[in-house]
Write a protein that binds this DNA or RNA. Sequence first.
DNA 1: TTGTAGGCGTTATCAG
DNA 2: CTGATAACGCCTACAA
Lengths: 338, 338
Amino acid sequence: MIRNTPVTLKFLAEKLKMSVSTVSKALNDYPTINEYTKKRVQEMARDFHFTPNKSAINLKERKSRIIGIILPNLLDHFFTRSIYGVEQFATARGYNVIIRQTHDELAKEIQAANMLLKSRVDGLIIAISKNTKDFAHLEQFENMGTPVVYYARNPSFNLNCHKVLGNTFQGSYEATKFLIGRKHQKIAYLGGPKMISFSHDRFNGYINALKDHQIPFVAGLVAYTDFDKENTILAIQKLFSDPENRPTALVAFKEPILFDAIKYLRSIHHPSFAEMECIGFGNNAFITYLDVPPVASIEENPEAVGENAIKLLLQLIDQEVELLHYQKIIVDCKLVVH
Amino acid sequence: MIRNTPVTLKFLAEKLKMSVSTVSKALNDYPTINEYTKKRVQEMARDFHFTPNKSAINLKERKSRIIGIILPNLLDHFFTRSIYGVEQFATARGYNVIIRQTHDELAKEIQAANMLLKSRVDGLIIAISKNTKDFAHLEQFENMGTPVVYYARNPSFNLNCHKVLGNTFQGSYEATKFLIGRKHQKIAYLGGPKMISFSHDRFNGYINALKDHQIPFVAGLVAYTDFDKENTILAIQKLFSDPENRPTALVAFKEPILFDAIKYLRSIHHPSFAEMECIGFGNNAFITYLDVPPVASIEENPEAVGENAIKLLLQLIDQEVELLHYQKIIVDCKLVVH
DNA sequence: TTGTAGGCGTTATCAG
DNA sequence: CTGATAACGCCTACAA
């Protein structure tokens, strides 16, 4: 049976021949309301499946109880897993979550930001696109007093903002150190897009591990790619072309890219292939099915990253942390040996 | 610079020394408003970055402009890909999308449904959990006049509802037929949870393909599992234990489960392994990295499934389709040979 | 052409 | 203990 008249406080009040305010108070268990009255009201509410209208409450409370998440891609398990952490805490606190994908396109990021701004989200968590250099569309939020937490991808050195980031420096340091421990001397580094968050810290971790273990740095052992398979193959060709400096190990900024690299080397029967040991960021669940799996993975703990992001955001919303008192939270990686 | 006073129509009206309604009309381009006035108002609105408060509009329009999606798991690429289709059309029409994962747990599904009900979503798209047999938590929506579209997972024979489903019958028919075409006589079927949507149609597709090609059905060539690796191994042991009826091909209800099966058979050096040909539902992007890939995949076109679901839902919301005039939309699968 | 008033559903304050 | 009233921000029929 379908109701046409919506079940509101007013509707219940009329049924019960009481005032709207009494009904409201009874449902919210006000101490000043007679127990018997409460019972009557609550029963009636249950019978008619009354649910308070969120829009009305939001209007009154000047809140939306919605948190926005903007991220590049849900097919990337890093982001999907990070959402677990966010969701859990957000829903426990009564917030809904709206996720918007940008596919790493700035235009879509701007569109998503504007739509979420209109929706008056109470807070925003964002992993910026690889092309985001200007932040005007995101600064709008803080101008309205809506907190923004940048996560997973580091916006830039000089942007003042709240950040929750994986410790990619430590991750690639440990990976490199691990490979050194396995007696590799020629360790290649395959980096990602030249954007700060993909390159800087990871590369530094690699370099520092080499230095700390007295392995000379060779420029020819470093190459960069992006999420495009062709570019990965070009980068790999560059890394493995010099017979004098043939790598025996490889650290890659992302596992799917590493898989492309491995597949390519294998397909051309590269002489180094058999002895190669590789490590990438990710720890993809799929690795268990691979014939030639990476020797280890850098587990980035995306759930923990998401969890820290939402916890910080909730503190900002609750004003337990000052909006302008910018926080930086770093989540360590963990080397997982396969 | 951070505003403390929110920018509302009232705020603008005071600045401009006009009435609230004039400002409202000017912003909504009413023909009765003087052009000069409009210009003044619109400029001021732009300068102060005015954005209308959604909660207020929602309250007034009795709409939320939010669509809820409940699904088991975002780590399953079927669902992640299905969201692409949904998102695109929803956002183009000005709807926000709230996604809730149930992890295939009924309790979480109920909780999510209740929360979305309170949020007064304008419509719901749901892939039910594998344990959902009672639908009271979902029938609430239709009782309030909120349309619900069931997708991806078929609720039951006798539930009257709107459905958008993949043509799993045709998918498994084609897979089986393809294997028969490759001269297989002993084709095993590895089915999913005994819930209707996982079993019935796929199994029928398999059976019918056998029958249409005069291959005798052997009960020992059918086994069932769920998403648990141990159960998959048990099922595989059952299928491959009888030397008299050793399968040379396998159709599986989900690719990740198929991968577990392949891995297991390989690990025990099963004599059939070398000649085996397998097909599963999914067409996972990862297959390209596998050493022993399935001979083909049943591509379920999740984007198209999502797209059909949202299109139907929008029609229901716009009342272009009667709420009680239940629709059933079937999206064909496509066999992709690797 | 502009302004006034009422209502969407809820909660809070204050009076009865 | 209960009820009337105002307010949240927006829109719109009607009055001026």
